[in-house]
């Protein structure tokens, strides 16, 4: 079952938080909504969870049943007056399921989430990771077709974050459900999702696979949000870009600001191609995991690129090439 958002708009206090959001969410997939804080991510998720209603627009599914996602909140929101067991059983209790069924399903889900020994604990006695598992169990016991996660890993430390990312992936594969999660960490989005939608200032700027998004940002806003890039000002003369470091052909994207986009990775190489970029002197080499960050000097202009080659020496000059036609926004 696929889900559709059609021209969703949300206005609060005369401020448009969401602007004409149209999205298709595929069945049995993980969609990440990636964007900066204050961009409307949580507002969108609240609409999918039916906690909030949009000012205009429709949210529907392909099987014509009114869809409603079950939400996992950023701060977990486990009921503080209930034990882990009572928290998990809450959704079934309000549906007036029998005590024996609740017990069986709770035991099963707690076993799956590896929290069986925490049943009698209260939320304040649990660690962040344990609280997240309980929160996940509380949602999963309802066997949702659509699971929503609001910045689910933001309060976990690095190791636990990776562990939980893998755990959620496993759960998704096991229960064959659709997950929509919002985050402002692009690594998190890339690691967990099949599709990424970039939400900036209440608008979906781009949707694609993590690789498509990272290698082909469609607008300046997306490129700027993704970061790890140099933006070189210059002037356009038809399809030719003239700047202090590069003069040559470029691909012009629609919203032209006359900025040459040079991402740190995947564009610049020393291997000869058809697109000569510039000659630069290596000023600094900084080690970052698995590769080096080079600081290059080109006629007083400094840019940074990543390279996994160890051939560079500080103070030496090298010729650099673009792997493909560079983009100007």
């Amino acid at each position: 079952m696929s889900y559709y958002l059609e021209a969703i708009n949300q206005e609060k206090n005369h401020r448009r938080i969401l602007k004409n959001i149209s999205l298709e969410i595929n069945d049995n997939s993980i969609l990440a909504i990636l964007g900066p804080s204050g961009g409307g991510k949580t507002t969108l998720l609240n609409i999918l969870a039916r906690i909030d209603q949009p000012s205009y627009g429709k949210f529907y599914s392909s099987d014509n049943i009114v869809p409603k996602g079950i939400m996992i909140f950023q701060d977990y929101r486990l009921f503080p007056n209930m034990t882990v067991f009572q928290n998990i059983a809450f959704g079934l209790r309000v549906k007036k399921k029998s005590r024996s069924l609740i017990n069986i399903r709770c035991q099963k889900i707690m076993k799956t989430m590896d929290i069986a020994d925490l049943a009698e604990y209260y939320p304040h006695e649990l660690s962040g990771g344990q609280q997240q598992r309980v929160s996940l169990a509380r949602a999963m016991i309802l066997q949702p077709k659509l699971l929503l996660m609001d910045e689910p890993f933001s309060s976990l430390d690095e190791n636990l974050r990776l562990e939980m990312l893998n755990f959620v992936k496993k759960i998704q594969e096991k229960f064959k459900m659709t997950i929509v999660f919002v985050t402002h960490f692009k690594t998190e989005a890339y690691l967990l999702s099949n599709q990424v939608a970039i939400l900036i200032d209440g608008q979906i700027m781009q949707k694609g696979t993590p690789k498509e998004i990272e290698t082909h940002p469609e607008s300046f806003a997306v490129a700027k949000f993704l970061g790890q890039a140099n933006f070189i000002p210059g002037e356009l003369d038809e399809n030719c870009f003239i700047s202090s470091i590069y003069r040559g052909p470029v691909e012009i994207k629609s919203d032209s600001r006359q900025l040459l986009y040079i991402p740190f990775s995947n564009l610049i190489t020393v291997d000869k191609t058809d697109y000569f970029a510039f000659e630069a002197v290596v000023k600094e080499i900084n080690w970052i995991v698995n590769e080096n960050r080079l600081v290059l000097n080109i006629d007083q202009v400094q840019i940074q690129i990543n390279s996994n080659s160890s051939q560079f020496k500080i103070g030496k000059s090298y010729k650099f090439y673009f792997k493909q036609l560079p983009v100007v926004f």
Partner: peptide
Amino acid sequence: KYEGVSTNLGANWWQ
């Protein structure tokens, strides 16, 4: 915030 969670998990206003 907890009322929102409760509604999302399927409870009505009285529950």
